[in-house]
Nucleic acid binder design. Structure first.
Length: 841
RNA sequence: GCCCGGGUGGCGGAAUGGCAGACGCGGUGGUCUCAAAAACCAUUGGGGUAACACCCGUGUGGGUUCGACUCCCACCCCGGGCACCA
């Protein structure tokens, strides 16, 4: 076959000539094409196998597919492929969350139309994504900025409007001065800055569109039949912030002599006798009516100052308490006591009623306020074991002791029952009632931006707010627009968009020029995947029922109180309208870790990103995929630096070894077959690997799955080096096939190629995972660790079948142990079967 | 301040009560080569020894246990989430 004699058997040169080198770029292109042509990755709606909807949070088309995206999508793809090899009809779609500010900013900055920028980015990203060889079902792709899709976003908005879940109202809202738009509460970060651009968000009183998510607060706290991380449910729970308590009416008399009930919300009605002052938020409407002329100057100054503070400054916990006395008094309904009414900025207008009863003895904030202002502190709880004095207190007494100074309630313990007694009493007295409060606010969904789904509403001077009739949907978003120098949305200056006629009266009317929050578009995309081309409806319920609820949803934890909360709300709302048959969209949830660059999430908006393209070109998609999964546990992510990339070499070498191993086994051999012991060892290694890898892949433990596969290939290489005749044995073929099948989800191209090289004609990806046979995995010899007083002193290779007494006899007769034990008798011998023996002296 | 994670060689990490450092990167030595690359073989936690022996070692300090990276208590550091919500 070769003409020269220099080529040595088994050398690299020989391999190259005989069977070709491993060339990732050639085989990857080839198989991607074959898979596309055979429709391997399209999930058929009528497939009889059990379905598995494997969903990943879809990307924003920033035009920059970086290694962080690859990491997410590879992990999801490995899992989906694994499920398919376990007999499921896996539906694994992908699309693009294509509305949003970056496109608009690009349009303003570079003069390119937002739709062009977005669609060309999508084309580019789709091409890049295809190089990773995922089983993405591109026939189901959705792009939220196309009329085919946003027609139904608009339609769903109308459905929510009809159901009374969408409304327009004036409210203090978050305004980002840099992005020139309002934001939902969920889009303002903890430090009071804009989630997108980092500018300090201010409060503005504006009329806006809201979704009534608060109506679902209690149901959002239920997680029926779903498997979510505790952490995520806790984050949502904290965000919703349910508090049980009571509404209690205090009476005030205004300067004009009018008697008014002022309700407060409290979770501690059992401390009503401890009220020594009454507090109002600076924005409370009663402040003006209660501030006496003597206090007016001080009050005006205080309120003016409070309004200039940012929300974050105002809510700074470290700040000392401030406030101004109104000069008026409120009547405590439980004992008719007169207490002074103060205004302070630590009372928030947006929570409860904007008025609070001050109980300094038992609330830390009120305590600090009382001490700062010199107001009295009255204990209505006393410790059980010793008496404390209010003058000597240094902090509030919270949830301890028993009731005092409270008439008929004295002596009751600190408990929910006691709280209930008080609630019952105030209800009987007619001065209050039980009430539940939530931290959750309604979801603000209108944006003063151009690049978003139009809100299908019309303003008519005669008929007010009129929804666009369904048959006129979609309201098309103009794609060719001119931005004004101030960067404001061009829609309101576009007469052909704004000017319309009223659907009711036919008279002239104006279109809504605000657009929908992109989070609304992403609150239902998983439904559209089930029926992506439907022209007559957002989705067909029967089609959705084939696939939903999503079996596995994967995405970053940063969406816990954003997308994941919104999508649950949306699903519940549609369920209530009879448009869905389930209440929870995502049965199982997994948060992958993130690829970090200098400690921060790798993303285009945050600076430095690493493109995978060069790595894929050099090492192949299979190597890059496996390398990313090899970095560590998938939920942990990884820090990306100069050293990270070096690890790719190891995985690339491994794939080369697998390739060569298969090439070598194709060689015919006239040698006599291997001995029984070698074959047993091979089978044992193979079946142990099946067990471990199948287990790991099912638990997202891709890094340890790969290391087990490396171990198997190392073992195979060693055994073959000692006995080349092993290649012709059926056990060897089993090992090779096992190796390829287990590796297939991680490195789909090379395994498909080699699978065909060894004679298969069907795709490896339609094959099922190898079956673990416990009998073949059993060890014949075990290593017994011998400890003396808990320290390892010896290791013995013993037959696996030996019983405890036999092991003890052998161990005690070894020179080391005998010497250590000496003439004495061991105090105790601990024996862990097949593992360890510890001799305590 | 509160609630979750996490802290292991030069590096990524493995081990969830039983041989700490699997697997891989990097390093060192070797084989092959005119040479280099690639590949392959050996070796690689620290101290110690001619080599063994032995000692130390999983953020820190205690505890439980025959035995602790693993469980308990206290603390330190890093990452994330929440934070005047009455």
């Amino acid at each position: 076959m070769t003409t020269e004699t220099e080529i040595k058997p088994g050398s690299e040169a020989e391999r190259t000539i005989e069977s070709g080198r491993y060339s990732p770029s050639d085989i990857e292109k080839k198989w991607q094409q074959v898979w596309e042509e055979t429709g391997l990755n399209h999930a058929d709606d009528n497939d009889p196998r059990p379905r598995f909807y494997n969903l990943v949070m879809f990307p924003y088309p920033s035009g920059d597919l970086h290694i962080g995206h690859w990491y997410n999508y590879t992990g999801v793809d490995v899992y989906g492929r694994f499920k398919r090899m376990n007999g499921f009809n896996v539906m694994q779609p992908l699309g693009f969350d294509a509305f949003g500010l970056p496109a608009e900013n690009a349009a303003i900055k570079r003069g390119v139309q937002a739709y062009k920028w977005t669609l060309s980015n999508i084309d580019k990203m789709r091409q890049q994504l295809k190089t990773m060889g995922g089983i993405w079902d591109w026939q189901r792709e959705v792009v939220t900025c196309l009329p085919d899709y946003y027609k139904w976003s608009e339609w769903l908005f109308l459905k929510l409007y009809e159901a009374g879940l969408a409304y327009r109202a004036k409210a203090p809202v978050n305004w980002c001065p840099s992005d020139q738009t309002v934001l939902a509460n969920e889009q303002v970060l903890v430090d009071g800055t804009c989630e997108r651009c980092g500018a300090v968000v201010i409060k503005r009183e504006l009329e806006q569109w809201f979704f009534k998510i608060t109506a679902y607060a209690d149901r959002l706290l239920e997680y029926k039949d779903i498997n979510w991380p505790e952490k995520t449910m806790l984050m949502q729970k904290n965000w919703i912030g349910r508090s049980e308590g009571a509404r209690v009416n205090f009476k005030v008399v205004t300067l004009g002599g009018e008697e008014i009930d002022v309700p407060v919300f409290t979770t501690r009605p059992d401390t009503l006798f401890g009220v020594t002052f009454f507090l109002l938020a600076p924005e409370h409407s009663l402040v003006e009516k209660l501030t006496t002329p003597a206090q007016k100057a001080a009050m005006d100054a205080y309120i003016a100052n409070a309004s200039t503070e940012t929300e974050y400054e105002r809510q700074n916990v470290e700040k000392t308490k401030t406030g101004v006395f109104t000069g008026s008094y409120a009547i405590n309904p439980i004992n008719d006591e007169k207490v002074p009414v103060w205004v302070t900025d630590y009372v928030l207008m947006g929570y409860g009623t904007g008025a609070v009863m001050g109980v300094p003895a038992h609330d830390q904030r009120d305590f600090e306020f009382a001490r700062t202002m010199g107001l009295p502190v009255r204990l209505v709880y006393q410790l059980d074991d010793r008496e404390i004095n209010s003058d000597e207190m240094t902090e509030a007494l919270v949830h301890e002791g028993h009731v005092v100074n409270s008439d008929q309630f004295n002596g009751l313990p600190d408990s929910q029952d006691t709280v209930q007694h008080f609630i019952k009493y105030i209800e009987q007295k007619g001065v209050g009632k039980a009430e539940v409060n939530y931290r959750l606010r309604d979801w603000l969904i209108s944006r003063q931006r151009y690049w978003g789904s139009p809100i299908p509403m019309i303003y008519c001077d005669t008929d007010g707010i009129v929804p666009v009739p369904e048959d006129q949907l979609p309201v098309i978003l103009p794609t060719e627009v001119n931005f004004r120098p101030d960067g404001l949305s061009p829609l309101q200056y576009l007469p052909e968009f704004v000017e319309t006629t009223c659907p009711k009266c036919g008279g002239p009317a104006r279109r809504e020029t605000d657009t929908l929050d992109t989070f609304m578009c992403s609150s239902w995309y998983f439904l559209r995947y089930c029926d992506p081309t439907n022209q007559n409806a957002a989705y067909d319920k029967a089609m959705v029922n084939r696939w939903m609820p999503v079996d596995q949803y994967t995405g970053g934890p940063e969406h816990a109180t954003l997308h994941l909360l919104y999508a649950r709300f949306f699903t519940k709302a549609l369920y209530d309208m009879g448009m869905l048959d389930f209440e929870e969209p995502f049965t199982s949830l997994f948060h992958q870790g993130m690829i970090r660059s200098e400690g921060k999430k790798m993303s285009k908006s945050r600076g430095k990103t690493v493109a995978p393209d060069a790595l894929v070109k050099q090492f192949g998609a299979d190597a890059v995929r496996s390398f990313l999964m090899f970095l560590g546990p998938f939920d942990q992510g990884a820090e990306w630096n100069d050293k990270t990339e070096q690890l790719l070499i190891g995985v690339s070498r491994f794939l080369n070894r697998v390739w060569n191993l298969v090439q070598d086994s194709q060689k015919a051999s006239s040698l006599v077959g291997p001995d029984e012991a070698t074959l047993k060892q091979l089978r044992r290694a193979t079946h142990k690997t099946i067990k471990k890898v199948v287990d790991d892949l099912g638990h997202w433990a891709f890094n340890t799955a790969l290391s087990s596969l490396m171990e198997l290939s190392n073992t195979m290489q060693e055994l073959a080096a000692k006995n080349p005749a092993i290649y012709t044995h059926s056990a060897w073929r089993e090992s090779i096939e096992t190796l390829l099948l287990l590796l297939a989800p991680l490195s789909p191209h090379i395994t498909e190629e080699l699978w065909h090289q060894i004679g298969h004609t069907e795709s490896i990806h339609n094959h099922s995972m190898p079956i673990f046979d416990p009998a073949l995995a059993v060890d014949e010899v075990v290593t017994i660790v011998v400890q003396i007083n808990g320290k390892v002193r010896e290791k013995l290779e013993l037959a696996a079948g030996m019983n405890e007494d036999e092991v003890k006899t052998v161990v005690l007769s070894t020179p080391k142990v005998a010497a250590a034990v000496g003439d004495g008798k061991p105090k105790k011998i601990i024996y862990v079967p097949g593992k360890l023996i510890n001799i305590v002296l």
